[in-house]
Design a protein around this nucleic acid. Sequence first.
DNA 1: TTGTATGCGTTATCAA
DNA 2: TTGATAACGCATACAA
Lengths: 335, 335
Amino acid sequence: MNIYDISNKAGVSIATVSRVINGNSNVSEKTKKKVLDVIEECGYTPNAFARGLGLNSMKTVGIMCADSSDPYIASAIFLIEQELRRNNYDALLCCTGYELEDKQKYINLLLSKHIDAIILIGSNFVEADDKMNAYIKEAAKSVPISIINGALSGENIYCTICDDHRAVYDATLALQESGCKEILYLYNAKSYSGNKKLSGYLAAMASETKNNKRDDYIQYIKGDILDVKDHLNNLYHHKLTFDAIITADDLLAIGALKFAKANNLSVPEQLSIIGYNNSIISQCSDPELTSIDNKLDTVCSNCIATLMSVLRGQDAPLKTVFSAELIERNTTRFR
Amino acid sequence: MNIYDISNKAGVSIATVSRVINGNSNVSEKTKKKVLDVIEECGYTPNAFARGLGLNSMKTVGIMCADSSDPYIASAIFLIEQELRRNNYDALLCCTGYELEDKQKYINLLLSKHIDAIILIGSNFVEADDKMNAYIKEAAKSVPISIINGALSGENIYCTICDDHRAVYDATLALQESGCKEILYLYNAKSYSGNKKLSGYLAAMASETKNNKRDDYIQYIKGDILDVKDHLNNLYHHKLTFDAIITADDLLAIGALKFAKANNLSVPEQLSIIGYNNSIISQCSDPELTSIDNKLDTVCSNCIATLMSVLRGQDAPLKTVFSAELIERNTTRFR
DNA sequence: TTGTATGCGTTATCAA
DNA sequence: TTGATAACGCATACAA
């Protein structure tokens, strides 16, 4: 069942059928109705491949992420897919992992499928060494690229981010105001966003009394909840003293909570803890986690709105920044 | 840059270029090398749409799920996407929500894109009333359909599931053996898998002393963690007594944990709790959750292996069943 | 082993 | 307002 069959049954040419399908106004009401009736009767749908070949687009955007099972990324994917579909675009999912080489490989794979745009979820796509981002800029020559929670300047690259620096800065200040002096910072990603968070912590701590072992208070930890707990145990038993922990991810904060429990430290009385992302797990722990809400829904819907403008050929901002919000629960004692 | 350009530069016909691209053996080593060199030099990639039009396939499978941000589903999506890509297939993601009407709409949408197969993630796609599954059987006439964690019999429908009945049966028995008498069952989905879990509970409880308020021990709860807690509070203050709770989802179990905490019930001494899915949140709570591991990774890789067999035209089992595993943590006191 | 010619199902251009 | 026809880029049956 193709456009010829329809044109035959309706007694018109395929051009007219095509016009009806695509809502071209230059068709008389009468023939339009006739064609529509035949289409309805036959349950005809245009062949997507042929259409793609003609228009050089199948109205599909590629979504790239490192790991779609990460709660933060999973939420982003969900929000984005919904928005895309609302705009009549399909979502082609591509999980790249964390290796640069694979990211490059997959971005080229997507490009070869002639997707209309690419969305990069997660700041882990933006490397500190800008040379390593060349492949993204190169891809942007073919299709618009939108980055969620990562900033990269370049033509045809659109970024929507949450102000991570400010978020951690404010959170650290809030800890200080609640009486905490020795604040540990835990992170697990050296990405663009990771750097912003860290710099927020550093800025807030700059005014504190100089501490010659400042570096000890900044800990990079890779691994699962147990690894975090062990790592902290280690620090603790090597006599590092701290009365607060701020983390770059909720899961790290859960690890911190496990550490506190194991050492009979009461939270938040003896140890305050702040997580990041305000994910569902921040409500699963006991006590529930104070966490930084990075407004993922706002970020995602803005990302798509921007992208749709670009695809319509309209102007769009290259960078949009939203503010995070500190969600207080029971691992801190703010006033 | 198309196949004609390559054929010109290489001084051969497009047929030969096509043969080289598709690994057809009937090409001399010499011309093959020549063509490959030109392709390399030009950075040529075949047009996916044209290829799709000719072959009526773009090697893409549609993944349907209700909500890709659900931790269980998110994990499944990740595993499946990886397996698909390993087999050179793309993944088109489609989040349908929980309304039957939308599921039907989206399955037709996917069909209209001529995807090669459809994977349904989650038992919520299989309705108890079989008439409501007609649209799936209809779709299976066009492409193979694979269901993860749901069973539906029909031609060209392949199911890979975990034995939920047995899993809950065994878990309930384990609770009984650890001394629990009054075991509450909490669930939040009346799906195929939901029914299996419930029946496992019922089977295990059948041998228990008859209880004229048996129904009170089976509670359907829709909502978030707080709703679960409130619901349980309600039951508790209406003098329903129970010494164990088994749930159809980890998040429900978290709610149960919050309830216990709020009422100063010690877990597991006064109240045992078992979750389902063994998701990351089962390690986030305190005490950590005993949970049923439904072997999602095994299920997903089997699902794709089966599907690939089907797509290669080979025989494949219509239904594959794996066993779950009870992961003991600290909300139970088994011996 | 290689080349020619045709079909795949659209959209778009041009003429009527 | 309509219709005829040429792209679009590839795979493949058939011929050489």
